[in-house]
Design a protein around this nucleic acid. Structure first.
Lengths: 98, 98
DNA sequence: TAAACTTGTTTATTATATAAACATAATTTT
DNA sequence: AAAATTATGTTTATATAATAAACAAGTTTA
């Protein structure tokens, strides 16, 4: 009846991050900070989880002497996101709008 | 950018329950048990939370000597569900399918 | 009447999301 | 040049939440 909802994506912040990365392909830590409005700590934790799952790649470098963390969604991440969206459809069916 | 996702609805089981009640208007405990595949304990807990929030009404009666719990979604519950679906749209935008 | 079944609740466990505190280094100020 | 402030993240602690295990109360069956 209802498909499983990938618990890694069924989280407001992680879903926000994935949603952003789906559209921009590459984003800095501060970009995610600004767009999501979450705390740095929270973002740091969730990025690590998404990376460990192989949903995104994280590159750490330096820019103007400051650390710069850059993220990219992976094919696996894109796939998981699409599956999640698809699974969610079952749950929203009742309220589907035109 | 991203709207808040009602934490009461952003839960796989509670969302399943609300989704079912949106379409059938009235359901027994066992109906929910069968359709969701969750445990009785879990369903009991989540029903109570949804009731406390005013998202649904629970009626307890007897049928053939056995307890019978029946649930109905309230207007407030319908409203919350629709808001949730609407908010979610922001998050899925990137993967919106035709 | 004892055993098994039905329907549900309460309690306990595990995981999770989140924020607070910390760390490191680079600037700016005085 | 020392002190304070800013920048960028990480680690740790806390509060919630989801879930399942254990329990309860009554009913039917053997």
């Amino acid at each position: 009846m209802f498909k499983e909802l990938d618990p890694l994506l069924h989280s407001q912040l992680r879903l926000s991050i994935m949603s952003l990365l789906i559209s921009v392909k590459s984003a800095t830590f501060n970009f995610l900070l600004e767009k999501t409005g979450a705390t740095r700590g929270n973002i740091s934790v969730q990025l690590k989880k998404l990376e460990e799952a192989g949903y995104l790649e994280i590159d750490k470098s330096f820019q103007d002497n400051y650390p710069l963390t850059t993220c990219r969604i992976t094919p696996k991440g894109i796939d998981a996101f699409e599956r999640y969206v698809d699974a969610l459809r079952d749950y929203l069916g009742g309220a589907e709008k035109a």
